[in-house]
Amino acid sequence: MPTANAASDVVLGTQAEHRDVRSFERATPYLLPAATAICFILAWEAFCYFSGVHPVVLPPPSAVLAKFFRFFPLIFSHSVPTTLESLVAFLLACLLGCGLAAVVVLSRRMREALWPNLVFFQLIPKIALAPLFIVWLGIGSESRLTFALFVTFFPMLIATVAGLEHVDRDMLRLCRSVGATRLQVLFSVRFPSAVPFIFSGMKISITLAIIGVIVGEFITSQRGLGYLILFASSRQETALSMAAIVMLCIVGLVLYGAVALGERIMKKWYDG
């Protein structure tokens, strides 16, 4: 039956085409941003090459990349304290955020006493407090960590409170009807169901932690990527400064990626 075969060939042909379209569709979320970035970098390179702009004002990407590889050991050694301090600030923010959220959710009185003050405190631009932290805590990592912590913990707190309160009203009734204590409800029901919310908060907090530490390093440090960026630009080494920023992006990606990975693992546990 030649006609039937021809017809099925046509159908198969279209299916194959469909498959191609689909795999292309699936790749675009990765291809398009990469292509956009490459176009931007090429345009930047071309601009530097043709406009004759001074490399101290705007070094071409190729020069930044060259600096990055040439000074990699230096840049890497400065990235270590930045990464560690960001991580510590983030972890402290998680503890403080979750702890305060638990207190606020457990006790109405504590909530009434604390919540407006926490919001008010959040309204102060943290950067304005940085000089005070130096007065109180010196120029060591304590003052940078405290500063970064204050920048970081609020989104954690907000997200965790939202998560802890997200629990279904009937679930809470069930808990009460079987005589569960408030702490049991907190740890067996509220915290586990808050996990997706907590991770949303963590994703914001980890980026803020890096910002906090970098700003702290701008103000006080002798080490770290923030210090290196400031130091290099004060010596008119704009390419090195930008190479340090490249490293900072890598650090940010790794830390954010770690949180995102954690989220995936927890999601698997959560949904089964």
Binding site: M171, R173, L174, V178, S188
Partner: peptide, 29 residues
């Protein structure tokens, strides 16, 4: 605790197995 309750929604804990969900009141008690 001599009373059992059911609501409109099953309100099961998504991160627990069905058996663990059934045993939830026992754990709370």
């Amino acid at each position: 605790t001599d009373i059992g309750i059911m609501f409109q929604d099953p309100t099961l804990l998504p991160w627990r197995s069905i058996l663990e969900n059934v045993l939830f009141p026992i754990r709370m008690m």
